[in-house]
Amino acid sequence: MMSVPRYWREIPERTRFEGARCTACGNTLFPPRMKCPKCGSEALEKYKLPQKGKLMTYTIVRSPPKGFEKMTPYVLGMVKLDDGTIVTVQITDVQPNQVSIGMQVESVFRKISEDGESGIIEYALKFRPIF
């Protein structure tokens, strides 16, 4: 279960993919931090991550955490976006056995989970193969 404010706080990151970029060295940060871990600069600006990338690695989840039972088996992956930033996301719209390392993927707005019948429904970006 997740409180409404807790979900609401992360909407820019989860639904618009807003991270940060260091104006000193160009490093991108997702999620954002107080300082650039590369150069230590605090001069960070809001930055929208690219919507496309390449699948770096993945796993097929067969033993899900609570709340994800209905969609099991599902694919979890790390995507290297076109600017080099890496994100952990679900891979969707594809059979698990069709997924391969290196495949081109793009972001798509999807439901992640729901907190029971009367709780909030949580949305965020997932990635799907570009065919």
């Binding site: 992360e10 990151e13 989860r14 997702f30 999620p31 989840v61 033993s63 899900p64 955490p65 709340g67 994800f68 969609m71 599902y74 979890l76 952990t88 996301v89 679900q90 992640i112 989970s113 949580e122 965020a124």
Partner: peptide
């Protein structure tokens, strides 16, 4: 940013 997406 990890558990939220269904990772464990």
């Amino acid at each position: 940013f990890e558990l939220f997406y269904g990772s464990s």
